[in-house]
Design a protein around this nucleic acid. Structure first.
Lengths: 151, 151
DNA sequence: TTCGATGCAAATAGTTTGCATTCTA
DNA sequence: TAGAATGCAAACTATTTGCATCGAA
């Protein structure tokens, strides 16, 4: 029932992620498929609980612990990134939607920035410390423009 | 009983912090003074619980919640920084001992680096987003040299 | 038909809060 | 002696784990 061509197909994205799971010997269960659907449909910075609520709209019996276990597994497989933002819960998103994060400690706003913004830090870290930073795994904390100006 | 001159005096550091508390209208209680002593004596990246244990060696009745309340207050006053490292608990240290952090997601090693390492990121963040990053408030997550080489 | 995945309940870790009491200023 | 700070218990949030069962391959 999808006769479009040339547009983005969420279904294809879901399958691509599930293929990675298959390739790793994992099984495609209904909860797992639903969870990936949710990540694909709106894959940005959602806590495990938010994702679970979304999944449960379709399948109310899917347990929060199942969501945690799947997110852990998907992260291990490299298709999901987790980011710890400030004091709140860990958030998860598809690894394909990669970007760095700035988190305002004053108003809580999260700004997504291209990975390239972290390049100079990454270069210095590698050169001086042999350390390879992953800009997707953390948020740089500070103050956003509004809070700097109006606070 | 301290006749040295020209050396670092922990006692003086404690008093300097307590002066900030006094200036803000706060009271100097035994638990508060002990907590500051602990931070001054070894002020790097300790969790609230670790700090509480240290304080309790001298005053066993000091409660963990008191430690949390004091750390929150001292952070609000700007004399303590908190940093969230990976999955572990929030860690606290004296704001005077400032530095950035690299956290290895593989082995958990934390590397302290001069603030200057974050300068280029801070500059780009300010220029492109008006965002003022605070390198003391977060850890850049990635892989340390050993884990990159041997993993 | 096997063993990876699930649902559930309970445990755990970290942190916050309400309240009566204490003690600094 | 007023109200800031404390100790304690209990609540709360985020996450993990043991275990019996289920179901995808």
């Amino acid at each position: 029932v999808d006769h479009d061509t040339g547009t983005t197909h969420h279904h294809d994205d879901t399958e691509a992620v599930l293929d990675v799971v298959r390739a790793a010997g994992g099984r495609i269960t209904p909860p797992r498929r639903l969870l990936v659907d949710v990540l694909v449909a709106d894959g940005r910075h959602r806590s495990a609980e938010e994702i679970a609520i979304e999944v449960q709209r379709v399948a109310p019996d899917v347990h929060l612990s199942t969501v945690y276990r799947n997110l852990d597994e998907l992260e291990r497989l490299g298709v999901v990134d987790s980011t710890r933002l400030g004091d709140g819960p860990t958030t998860y998103h598809l690894a394909s939607a990669t970007h760095g994060h700035f988190l305002c400690e004053h108003c809580g706003t999260m700004i997504e920035v291209p990975d390239a913004v972290f390049d100079s830090l990454a270069t210095a870290a590698k050169r001086d410390y042999g350390f390879v930073i992953d800009p997707h795994r953390f948020a740089a904390v500070g103050r956003c423009r509004d809070c700097v100006e109006n606070d």
